[in-house]
Simulated scan of single mutants.
Amino acid sequence: MPRKLKVKLYSTIIRPVLLYEAEVWTMGKEQERILETTEMRMLRRIKGVTLRERERSTDIRRELGVSDINEKVKEIRMRWYGHVKRREEGHPAKEAMESIVPGRRPRGRPNKRWRENVEDMSHFGVRPEETVERETWRRKTRAADPARRDQQP
Rank of each mutant, 00 (worst) to 15 (best):
E36A: 15
I14A: 12
R105E: 11
R86E: 00
G28L: 02
V24Q: 07
N111R: 15
R139T: 09
E21G: 14
V118G: 02
R104P: 04
V49Y: 03
I46S: 06
V126K: 05
E75C: 09
R139A: 13
K85R: 15
R3Y: 02
E39T: 14
H83K: 14
Y20A: 09
R113G: 11
H91K: 09
K74S: 12
D59M: 09
G90L: 06
E53G: 11
M1D: 04
L35H: 02
N117A: 12
N117D: 12
A96G: 01
G28I: 00
P102Y: 02
R127T: 15
G28F: 00
R79K: 14
M78V: 03
E135A: 14
L19S: 04
G108C: 05
H83M: 10
M42R: 04
R109K: 14
S57D: 15
K29Y: 06
Q152V: 14
A96L: 12
N111T: 11
K112A: 12
I34P: 00
A147D: 09
E130L: 08
P128A: 02
I76Y: 02
M42D: 00
I34C: 08
R113K: 15
K112R: 14
Q31F: 01
V17D: 04
R15I: 02
A96I: 03
P102T: 04
K72S: 02
I60D: 01
Y20R: 08
E129D: 13
D59W: 05
R134F: 04
G125M: 06
E30H: 10
R149C: 07
R149A: 14
L64I: 09
Y20T: 05
V126H: 06
P146T: 08
E39Y: 01
A143R: 14
M27Q: 08
A147G: 08
E75D: 03
H91S: 14
V17C: 10
K47S: 05
Q152W: 13
P92Y: 09
E55I: 15
K29M: 06
R134C: 08
R77W: 00
R44P: 08
E39R: 01
R138N: 14
M97Y: 13
V17L: 10
T136E: 11
R77L: 02
E36T: 13
I60E: 02
K72R: 13
L18H: 11
R15W: 00
L5R: 10
Q31H: 07
E95H: 00
R113W: 04
E116D: 15
T12H: 07
D120W: 04
I14K: 09
W114A: 07
E135V: 12
E21Y: 07
R87H: 10
W137E: 03
V118W: 01
I69D: 00
R77P: 01
H83F: 13
P16V: 08
P110L: 04
L5N: 05
A93M: 10
T38S: 10
